[in-house]
Nucleic acid binder design. Sequence first.
DNA 1: AAGAGACTCTTTACCAGTAAAACACCTGTT
DNA 2: AACAGGTGTTTTACTGGTAAAGAGTCTCTT
Lengths: 185, 185
Amino acid sequence: MSATDGGSATEGDARGGPGGDTVAAVVRQWRAVHPDLDTGPMEIIGRINRCSALLQQAEDAPLRRAGLSRAEFDLLGALRRTGHELTPGDLARETFSSGAAVTKRLKQLTERGLVERRGDTRDRRVAHVRLTDAGRDLVDGILPEQLAYESAVLSGVDGTEQGELAALLGALLGRLEGRLEALRV
Amino acid sequence: MSATDGGSATEGDARGGPGGDTVAAVVRQWRAVHPDLDTGPMEIIGRINRCSALLQQAEDAPLRRAGLSRAEFDLLGALRRTGHELTPGDLARETFSSGAAVTKRLKQLTERGLVERRGDTRDRRVAHVRLTDAGRDLVDGILPEQLAYESAVLSGVDGTEQGELAALLGALLGRLEGRLEALRV
DNA sequence: AAGAGACTCTTTACCAGTAAAACACCTGTT
DNA sequence: AACAGGTGTTTTACTGGTAAAGAGTCTCTT
């Protein structure tokens, strides 16, 4: 839910007592008003959106401590995990954001000495961006902390269920990514 | 994600060939760079965030056709599904957004004749907001369309799996909501 | 070799959101 | 009755995002 957005997608009133999350409460409300509608999709999509909002909010805490926004960390992370230089265009694709946003972030991260850029020798339109040592150290320092935090957040769900959840989400995501590439409205 | 938002949370490079989504590809990259880290949480959290971004983008299409943003629809929806007047503060809680954002949206929606406000007779600080007939008709017109669209988006996943997914997400969400209320960092 | 069109990146103008301050009002205490 | 402190809402100042236009460069065709 633009994240930063905000949560969203039809949320909760009834504080969803024990054994019910807020989405369940919202769905109940809708069904009371429109008993004829199939509210099935809400139970999945509403929950995904709400989980995403809460998880992002939780995840941002350790990042802020390091003075980074999530968007900045995503950009640095893309450079770190690919292991080689990327152009601004590559970074836009990797981080699913607009080119203009990448331009802005690069400016700030360059000023902070976390990334460096050099021009392409052949094609003077393109730039190549890479992590500085400080940038790499920062990412490597944050990542374990971040993963530990994520682990803690998920600790309420047992291991087997985590596996099932990852698998089901993977299947859904595969479909969604295929579909959107196909239907490209 | 914002997400809005923007998608986010460590996304994909390798175009995740057949049988792998982009998150799987990203996780593979991280493991190659940091073989020692437990990347398990990424496979859930990364997928939830990415699914959420894609779903929200998809869901916004039918809304835009009706001239509404998701945030505006959420606000109208909260009024519709509760069935009674709400104060701006209530609306902020229902839609998980700040009071200031609600103030702005209400201004626009009032100008468009979709909601009305009246002052409380006892406590002159508070306002009561309700849908106009036009507002109610708009929501009721959009909702079935929206649900049908969501249904179509999920159609790639079979019914049994949808049930499992909803249940697992419900469990996770319940935990997250409980936890955040408890840990309130 | 020259121009049309495509491509990469940046700039501009704008918009929606937030946090914090401001405002208006209520309530309990003295 | 008056004030201190709390609550509900709005205003202000700012941030970070996008879309669209702009600037610079390449490539293909003739």
